[in-house]
Amino acid sequence: MREAAEALDVKVWRGNAHGGGYRSYSVPAQESQTVLDVVTWIQQHAEPTLTYRFACRVGMCGSCAMMVNGEPRWTCRTHVRRVLDGKRLEIAPLRNLPVIKDLATDMAEFFDKWTGAEGVFHPTATRKDAIAPISPADPMRQLANEAVECINCAVCYSACDTVTANPSYLGPAALNRAWTLQNDERDGAYAPRLRAVSADGGCFNCHSHQSCLTYCPNDLNPTASIAGLKRLSSTSFLRRGRTR
């Protein structure tokens, strides 16, 4: 990797649940440098106690999301040159989640909402049964496919203004997951999940701002999934509880 002569002016949020602030670091600019590379350089060369979270470095595990110049991003796949503001780079923990330390947030609330939205597969068969044949051309399977590549990075949750304003709102990731399961023929919790996603903190609180769609690193459209859940819940109610 060729090292350029110039340096980046990087501000990183340091602190914990009780508060904190930004500290400045000068980081050598390099070619094909990602935001995660910058954070790693700071920890290895300037601030050994800097806390952050990452695992796969290839955009699969969803653990390295942070606020970069005010916007939520997966840092391992975000090239510095795409987000640099002049030479300035400001890195902070994800919005809408409590901070544990520095750039690491507490994801418990995020995953609790997944289970709150019944974003859990409920099997209807045992391992002794034959595998259910589901055609890739099946319309329900195609709907599920469009939303299934979520990596749980919480970028959409962090981008969502409704989550900011309404802490009980389940959020786009949990509802998107619920939508994929409502379109999974093998799942056995259609009615309980419909009740979970149409409760007070559920899909009906979405204002369709579409920040989740704008920022999803995998180009998913949780707003469309939530609209699908609104449609399913409303239709079921108008049919007096009959679901499919």
């Binding site: 149409s198 409760a199 007070d200 009906f204 609180n205 409303s234 109610f237």
Partner: peptide
């Protein structure tokens, strides 16, 4: 805090 009934009432 909007649930199913309020949502439907507002849409209708």
């Amino acid at each position: 805090m909007i649930g199913l009934r309020l949502y439907l009432a507002q849409r209708l």
